[in-house]
Simulated assay, not measured.
Amino acid sequence: MPILSNLDFTRSNLHVAYRASLDPQLVDISVATAGVTRFPYAQLTVRKLLTSVNSGSAGGARFPPTAGAAIITDEGSDPCGPNYFWRVRMAAVDPLFLRTVVEELRMAGLDHPVTSMRITGSLPLDATVLSVREADVKRWLDDPDAYVGQWPDPGFPVVDQGRWAMFRIRLGAEITPALRRKLDLLALGWLNDVSSYIWDTGEPEAGRIDRSLPRCGSGKVEFAAGYDDFYFKTGPARARLVNALSRFHATVAPIELAEISP
């Protein structure tokens, strides 16, 4: 049984056929809900998911963070439903990321429940672990540890520090105002990446999102972000941050050291 709520549709109305690859492919995502909303929540959710891909955090342990890419090529639906469709060109997205796609889009209709969901990639399935169907995703929905993993070589040393929720990085470049803005977005992106993750207790818990927002500070070459109510599953949450930092290191500014808690 899925850990999170609002996933009843997955029992019989979830269809998945996806083979992950470094090569770009088209992935069709369709969601049907029970009614029209007043706010385009589903559209914003998809863009949030694609931002995660483009920040490098969705490649997991299988694909380098620099390879993640996603862009909407077709959006054939009313922004407020009740039926939604997106065609996305994407590459280097770990199959386990589909768990997060399903859990995020389970609220596509807000007060109107999702009645069905389909995620279909253009690449043919094969017998490798990169190919998944709905049975795999449904199994992950019931597993507190089934999230994307950490890329093994982020490109800089990572030191674990304590149990409070924070991270601190030392850069090999001076932090200009433009770079500081990008660092602030990186800190906020970590929260967005894991906002649907279960908590360390193994259960979904309601928290105040305003207390989860990062408090950021920087010096000449150091940046730090701290979080109050941030109790998301420690290992998976840390993996998403390391992956995003690795992408940042390779494409924005070099990181000499990262200290992370959790």
Rank of each mutant, 00 (worst) to 15 (best):
V132I: 13
A135T: 14
W151V: 05
V148L: 08
R139K: 14
G149E: 07
A135R: 14
A127W: 08
P154S: 08
D143E: 10
P154H: 03
D143F: 05
V148Q: 06
R133S: 11
W151Q: 03
K138Y: 07
A146P: 03
D143A: 08
D143I: 04
D142P: 02
L125F: 07
G149A: 09
P152A: 05
K138M: 15
V148P: 06
D136P: 00
Q150D: 09
Q150S: 12
Q150C: 13
L130T: 05
D142H: 09
L141F: 05
G155V: 00
V129T: 15
V129F: 14
G149N: 09
W140M: 13
L141T: 03
A146H: 01
W151S: 07
E134R: 05
P144M: 11
P144V: 11
V137L: 07
F156L: 06
V129A: 14
V148A: 10
L141S: 04
Q150F: 01
W151D: 02
L130H: 11
T128P: 02
P152Q: 02
V148S: 08
V132M: 06
D126Y: 11
P152F: 01
D153W: 04
V137M: 03
P154K: 01
L130M: 12
D136I: 09
R133T: 15
A135E: 14
V129C: 10
Y147T: 02
D142R: 08
D126S: 03
A146N: 05
W140K: 01
Y147C: 04
